[in-house]
Computed example of a mutant assay.
Amino acid sequence: MKIRALTGAVQDLQDATDLIDELAARRLGINRTDMRCLSRLSARGALTASELAAAAGLTGGATTTVIDRLERAGLAQRVRDGGDRRRVLVHLTERAEQLSTEIWGPIVDDAQAELRQFSLPELELIERFLSCALDNQKRHASRLRSGPA
């Protein structure tokens, strides 16, 4: 059955992605929660601590601890917002940008080369599938967060 083969392929991709994340975290000397926050900062740019907490699904206290660890590792820094001095933004450091390029740059390059093999309608279908899969993951993360342990 094709659906079973596709769901198996998605699971294999998730497992391979999980392995890359684990190996990258080890190389960076951080844990997986820290990695999730780095990912959010990389994708969205500088964020306040509360924005980062929401993006990473963490409490405020946990986020403060993560930011402290990322600063000690030289991967992030708190910077006072020039437009609103009460506001502090968390930025990736140049070192984090460089390491990110070293770790994920070749992966992105290869993925983009592979995607160029598809037609526009095929790419639109892949995008639609990924959007549905992401909605599914978010829905079930919410379910697991709010349900009994």
Rank of each mutant, 00 (worst) to 15 (best):
A96Y: 04
E102G: 01
L134K: 04
Q112N: 04
P106Y: 09
Q77K: 14
E127R: 01
L120C: 00
D68Q: 14
Q117I: 08
D135L: 15
D84G: 05
A73W: 03
R85H: 13
E102L: 05
R95Q: 11
A62S: 10
T93Y: 01
V79A: 11
A111F: 07
S100Q: 04
D135I: 14
L92I: 09
R80A: 14
Q98I: 12
D84A: 13
A96T: 01
D110V: 08
A113Q: 10
D135P: 04
T64S: 14
S100Y: 09
R85C: 03
R72Q: 15
V88C: 11
D84V: 13
A113F: 01
E127A: 10
Q98R: 11
G61I: 02
S131G: 07
G82V: 10
L75S: 02
V66G: 00
T65Y: 14
P121Y: 15
L70K: 00
N136A: 15
K138C: 11
L123V: 05
F118V: 08
D110L: 11
G105W: 03
D135F: 11
T63G: 05
R87C: 10
R86M: 15
D110S: 06
S119D: 07
L123S: 02
L134N: 12
D135Y: 09
S119G: 03
R87M: 09
T93C: 05
Q98K: 10
L89W: 14
Q98A: 08
F118R: 00
R72I: 15
T63I: 10
E71K: 10
A62W: 09
V66E: 02
